[in-house]
Simulated assay, not measured.
Amino acid sequence: MTDPVAPPTDLPLYSPARVRELLARHGLKPTKSLGQNFLIDGNILRAIAEAGGAAPGVPVLEVGPGLGVLTREVATRGARVTALEKDERLRPVLAETLAGQGVEVVWGDALDFDYSTLPPGTRVIANLPYYITGVLLSRFMGAPNVLSATVLVQKEVGQRLAAHPGEDNYGFLSALAALHGRVRHVRDVPKGAFFPAPDVTSSVIRLDFDRERPAPEPAFLTFVEAALHHRRKTLRNNLRLAGYPAPGIDAALEAAGLRPDVRAEDVPLDMLRAAATALGVVR
């Protein structure tokens, strides 16, 4: 009878062999429904931590730590990390991989977490579950103590976040990001940087939130979402579909200096606000 092969603990946590060994030893398989694609590229990990501002004493929030690969990279830089994890099967894995790192793991659904409780100056650094990316980003934007979010997202989502009016990828997510701050594309990430490999290319995006700027009014956000609901339609038609009266829309477009046939995706945010003001949505 041969002796069992010792686990490759001398390998970096992000190495494919170490990841496979951890999963096998704990009897786990990545769950597609939870968006579990684990990073196995050290250069990408270091780039995310660096771009996210992980540094001694900085409060960092991570959503979906998985096996703790990115978590450990951020924690070893001295950041004070809080990690939100939904998958209870990962308890023994994270107890092992994050031992001695001072990371606080909060078990539960990220959609149920109260982001207003985060300490001032928090920076989000995370490989977000792709299926709830938009919802989570809106939660970060609305949390006053979150200064930035450096996140791995689908490449097309990154393109939408960074798009400007008149560009093909511009939509409500683009407008939402612009209303709260600015977006920077850090780098693209190939499928092979993950285990298992996802079906799409990813991007690292950093969003910086301008907390000196007044938060956009909920009524204006609702108006912008309605205006951009069908990006290829005219703004006039979108507003009519949202229930605004046609005479009021026509008057508002004229007051804002917009053509009656202007497409929603071509309208800058300041002109949308002018139209919303003329319609009485905001003051």
Rank of each mutant, 00 (worst) to 15 (best):
residue 89 R to Y: 09
residue 187 R to D: 01
residue 112 D to P: 05
residue 228 L to K: 04
residue 6 A to D: 08
residue 3 D to Y: 13
residue 124 V to W: 08
residue 78 G to R: 11
residue 231 R to G: 06
residue 46 R to K: 08
residue 212 E to D: 15
residue 164 H to S: 15
residue 2 T to Q: 11
residue 142 G to A: 15
residue 95 A to F: 06
residue 30 P to Q: 03
residue 89 R to V: 04
residue 256 A to G: 07
residue 164 H to G: 13
residue 254 E to F: 07
residue 206 R to D: 05
residue 207 L to K: 13
residue 258 L to M: 12
residue 31 T to F: 12
residue 60 V to F: 07
residue 57 G to S: 11
residue 248 G to D: 09
residue 137 L to S: 05
residue 60 V to R: 00
residue 83 A to L: 12
residue 32 K to C: 08
residue 142 G to R: 14
residue 98 L to V: 11
residue 114 D to H: 13
residue 204 V to H: 00
residue 36 Q to E: 13
residue 185 H to A: 10
residue 204 V to P: 00
residue 134 G to Y: 09
residue 84 L to A: 10
residue 253 L to C: 10
residue 214 P to V: 05
residue 243 G to H: 08
residue 179 L to E: 12
residue 33 S to C: 14
residue 247 P to M: 06
residue 83 A to M: 10
residue 217 E to T: 12
residue 249 I to P: 02
residue 262 V to G: 09
residue 228 L to F: 04
residue 108 G to V: 09
residue 187 R to W: 00
residue 52 G to I: 03
residue 224 V to R: 08
residue 279 L to I: 06
residue 242 A to K: 03
residue 137 L to H: 02
residue 76 T to Q: 14
residue 82 T to R: 09
residue 174 S to N: 10
residue 149 A to Q: 07
residue 74 V to Y: 03
residue 216 P to Q: 14
residue 248 G to M: 02
residue 125 I to F: 02
residue 185 H to M: 10
residue 136 L to R: 04
residue 99 A to P: 09
residue 5 V to W: 00
residue 267 V to L: 08
residue 39 L to Q: 00
residue 73 E to R: 04
residue 145 N to H: 15
residue 217 E to R: 14
residue 156 E to F: 11
residue 58 V to K: 06
residue 38 F to V: 02
residue 185 H to Y: 12
residue 23 L to A: 08
residue 282 V to S: 07
residue 197 A to P: 07
residue 86 K to I: 14
residue 145 N to L: 14
residue 258 L to R: 05
residue 44 I to C: 02
residue 104 E to K: 15
residue 148 S to Y: 10
residue 181 G to N: 13
residue 65 P to T: 06
residue 129 P to Y: 09
residue 40 I to N: 00
residue 180 H to N: 15
residue 199 D to H: 13
